[in-house]
Simulated assay, not measured.
Amino acid sequence: MNNIGFGDKDFSFAVYIANKPNMLEYQSLCEVTSLVEGEINVINQACGNGWRKVFNVYAKLLYALDKKHFDYSENTPTWQNYRDKYLLQSQSKTALLFSPPQLMSNIEMPNKKIVHIVCGKGHAKALINSSNLVANLIWLDDEFAIDKENRLIVCPYFDYRQLSNIKIERLAGLLSDLGGIREGIE
Rank of each mutant, 00 (worst) to 15 (best):
A14N: 14
I17N: 01
I17G: 05
I17P: 00
K20V: 07
K20E: 12
K20Y: 05
P21W: 11
N22R: 12
E25R: 15
Y26G: 08
L29D: 06
L29P: 08
L29K: 03
L29T: 01
L29H: 03
C30P: 00
C30A: 11
V32R: 02
V32Q: 03
V32H: 03
V32P: 01
T33E: 15
L35K: 10
L35I: 06
V36K: 15
V36D: 07
E37C: 11
E37L: 02
G38R: 03
G38F: 08
E39D: 13
I40M: 03
G48K: 01
G48S: 06
N49L: 02
G50V: 07
G50A: 14
G50I: 04
R52W: 00
R52Q: 09
R52T: 13
K53C: 14
V54Q: 09
F55G: 07
F55K: 04
F55R: 00
N56R: 11
Y58H: 15
K60R: 15
K60S: 07
L61N: 09
L61E: 13
D66S: 13
K67I: 11
F70H: 11
D71I: 09
Y72A: 08
S73N: 11
S73Q: 12
S73V: 02
E74W: 05
E74C: 11
N75L: 07
T76L: 14
W79E: 07
Q80V: 09
Q80W: 01
N81W: 00
Y82S: 04
Y82G: 03
D84G: 07
D84C: 00
Y86T: 01
Y86S: 02
Y86G: 01
L88V: 02
Q89H: 00
Q89A: 00
S90T: 14
K93V: 01
T94G: 05
A95K: 04
A95D: 02
L97V: 13
L97C: 08
F98S: 13
P100V: 04
P100R: 06
P101V: 03
P101E: 10
Q102H: 08
L103C: 07
L103T: 04
M104V: 12
I107L: 08
E108M: 14
M109I: 14
N111F: 15
K112W: 10
K112P: 00
K112R: 12
K113A: 08
V115D: 08
V115P: 00
I117M: 14
V118S: 10
C119R: 02
G120T: 10
K121D: 02
K125N: 14
K125A: 06
A126W: 04
L127Q: 11
N129H: 09
N129P: 02
N129G: 04
S131G: 05
S131V: 01
S131L: 09
V134Q: 12
W139T: 05
D142W: 01
E143C: 09
E143M: 11
F144N: 08
F144C: 06
A145W: 03
A145D: 01
A145V: 10
D147Y: 10
D147N: 12
D147I: 05
K148V: 11
K148M: 05
K148R: 14
